[in-house]
Write a protein that binds this DNA or RNA. Structure first.
Lengths: 246, 246
DNA sequence: AAGGATTTGTTCGTATGTATC
DNA sequence: GGATACATACGAACAAATCCT
């Protein structure tokens, strides 16, 4: 086993480095068949730190729901499945998680009519300062928050879009009210960063958690841009699956 | 502009959070045409912290080579741009960064012949325990490390692959020596996590940095799996670009 | 059933790092 | 630079729950 050390004086607390490492090792399949973790003493020795420091890390992971500690018995991995979120020409949130989750839903956190920033204007191919609708949404699967999205629509074309979305809970259905029967994902740019305070709250993450950020552009049947969105996924709960057409 | 705050009691020191944010903002194109940064006072106010804290963050970035501070004049951006790495059916490292970097190269850090783990065996459609070649590589663009990859090949079919790779520095060329004229990317799974110490070293990152992880499977012209790989990209320097065929 | 060993939980104290003013 | 407050990390001991012989 490769022995990776924790770094002192790095600006990242030891307990957080250890928590990140353990979380990562769990994704890689650490733990015996019962999901039992090594003892606190063993972990402390392995990382070269005091037992208290390991305990702080474990407490953070218990808080996240990754581990479960039982006095006198040990610490166990709390089984969590990672959702595979497909990204492709026909990317749709509702279908994406079909078959993986029993219950899934999206709801709107808020909306606003604003003026297009240069970035948004360029993506939607409208003028800078033109009216756009900004939609803030949260998606859940099996009662666990999965993603947090901010979407922009051309307000000239889609004024009142938010009301249809609230009624149906579906972007696809809301589009139909505006005569858009079909749409495609033209491009997606994927990056990653630490979760901001907004994500920490809505995605129920702990400070230091990582979010995958997908910048996407949807186009209608005529190839015109209709939606520009930034979606943040909890990196612990989701992986993005890019599949190629055969 | 959305104002994301720095978090106290997160196990990540404020100065490091601020350093991460600044580095990220620079990738996104912060700074005026001369590369001048806002003053320390302005940054302190923006992040809601003391000026000393901002100074600590700036010193860390100067140490990394991201910023350059000149007494009496100000702080300036040293270099830095974010590469867009395309992912699609014809994903190839060498072509991926064409046009974005003047100089790019891959080199091998090491190789080993091993027995296939269940994960690798399943991906390559061979038996568990069958011999596989593991290749550890590092890719650079304009003298900056971009990605770190671990690839597995069926050793029955590709024994000696590493010698051809060393000679040519190209996966595509090495394939040709084994009669594989063309290959496709069948699937890519993207996730993100904190960089491990191996990545910190090879990708020249600081503790707490984030890496994008792409698990990919390549197939030959007959649809048979030929390469299973895990590639880690520095999230600060690369974004993954998923483009759809028209 | 008893008791020792193991493992997590808690409480002291002390030193150092981080951040503010 | 110095004073102050809080977070982080270590050390030692003990308590509580569980396991095993």
């Amino acid at each position: 086993m490769e022995q990776r050390r924790v770094e002192r004086r790095s600006g990242v607390a030891l307990w957080r480095q250890i928590a990140d490492r353990i979380r990562q090792d769990i994704s890689a399949g650490l733990g015996d068949e019962n999901g039992r973790m090594p003892t606190e003493m063993a972990l402390a020795e392995r990382f070269g730190v005091n037992r208290h420091t390991v305990r702080t890390a474990i407490q953070a992971l218990v808080q996240e729901g990754v581990l479960r500690a039982e006095q006198g018995r040990g610490t166990f991995i709390q089984r969590q499945r990672r959702f595979a979120y497909p990204i492709g020409p026909r990317t749709r949130l509702s279908e994406g998680l079909a078959g993986q989750a029993h219950e899934r839903r999206s709801h709107m956190l808020g909306h606003a009519y604003e003026q297009a920033t240069p970035e948004v204007a360029k993506a939607l191919e409208i003028d800078v300062g033109a009216p756009v609708l900004r939609l803030e949404t949260l998606s859940e699967a099996d009662a666990r928050p999965i993603s947090r999205a901010r979407s922009y629509f051309d307000a000239e074309r889609f004024r009142g879009f938010e009301r249809h979305f609230i009624e149906t809970g579906s972007i696809t259905a809301a589009y139909r009210a505006f005569g858009v029967e079909d749409y495609l994902r033209r491009s997606t740019a994927i990056s990653a960063r630490h979760a901001g305070s907004d994500d920490l709250e809505h995605l129920q993450l702990s400070p230091g958690a990582i979010v995958l950020v997908a910048l996407g552009l949807n186009i209608d049947g005529d190839g015109r841009p209709i939606q520009y969105s930034e979606t943040r996924f909890s990196a612990d709960r989701v992986e993005l699956q890019v599949s190629m057409p055969d």
